[in-house]
């Protein structure tokens, strides 16, 4: 494996009232296999718990998953609470199934979640490898930015 997340600390869970567990389980394993330290919060994780854990665990990234159609309800406040907790430098990714109808257009959905302050938003069926290579790139960029 060429890409490595050695040393990276990632918090992951399904948000709000969401009970979908399969995606975060697989993603958690994949991140761990890529070398990351994974803090798995499981299903129905309150926004506050994501934030508190990110701070307490000194996380590099938080992976928020929402599949049940309520992403727009629960994801709105995450970036604000992170900033209030002094953790504005933590990368925020969101994925799962972010729309709430089969008729939704992905580019509009993506724009909405980026506007909420997520660094990246993913459509359903994103392969873990995609998220991992993005995270490797984002972390490398952060490192070179803080060095330079």
């Amino acid at each position: 494996m060429t890409e490595s997340l050695q040393g990276a600390r990632v918090v992951i869970g399904s948000i709000g009232d969401d009970i979908h567990v399969v995606g975060i389980t697989i993603l958690g394993h994949a991140l761990r296999n890529a070398g990351a330290e994974v803090i798995q919060l499981g299903i129905q994780t309150p926004v506050e718990e994501f934030v508190a854990t990110a701070v307490a665990e000194d996380a590099d990234a938080v992976f928020v998953s929402s599949s049940n159609g309520h992403a727009a309800i629960f994801c709105d406040g995450v970036r604000g609470l992170m900033a209030a907790a002094g953790a504005d430098d933590v990368l925020l990714y969101v994925g799962g199934n972010l729309a709430n109808t089969a008729a939704a257009d992905w580019s509009e959905v993506e724009a909405r979640f980026l506007a909420m302050g997520f660094d990246r938003a993913y459509p359903s069926r994103t392969q873990p490898a995609q998220a991992i290579s993005d995270l490797v790139a984002d972390l490398a960029q952060r490192r070179s930015a803080s060095n330079g």
């Binding site: 159609g69 199934n97 729309a99 709430n100 109808t101 089969a102 008729a103 359903s124």
Partner: peptide
Amino acid sequence: IDEGIGVPTAES
């Protein structure tokens, strides 16, 4: 037939 995409449309 929309299950893999999202909440189905009426027609589906």
